[in-house]
Amino acid sequence: MKKLIAIVATVVFLPAAAMAETFDDAFDMNRAMHGKGYTFTWSGKQYSTDHLEEVEARVAATKENAEDLIAKAKAKNAEVANVGFEWKLTKGILKDAEAAMVSGDYRKALDLAAQAKYHARIGLEQHAYAENNWHLSVPQ
């Protein structure tokens, strides 16, 4: 009986132990609860809930910087298109970013490029997740 309890205990607690919160989980949960610009602690260190792309856009609003981020966003979107997971609005956002750059609104161009790059990056994550989990809704 004691042994059985021990086995049950191991079975119950093992998954919990194996699922210690990863940085990505902690980031998502804090962003989800608090939005951007929030500071949280993970593994004893402090981090911000800002997306990588929001940080990338926080540079001087110059033509060069805008061009650079638009190019990065385009490359990321090409990557996600290659695995068949390109999102519908991303190309349009990139077009708007380019139009803003041409009209000299480099701040707007940077922000839009950041959003497009984020969409492409999350599309890649979505693809990677789907590869392992698409079966979850298959009727058994």
């Binding site: 998502d28 989800a32 609860m33 979850l136 809704s137």
Partner: peptide, 19 residues
């Protein structure tokens, strides 16, 4: 922000996570 965190097959779009 992301309903799929609690239910991976939910029909609800992740309104925050997917911006």
């Amino acid at each position: 922000w992301d309903a799929s965190k609690n239910n991976p097959i939910t029909i609800m779009p992740p309104l925050g996570k997917h911006w």
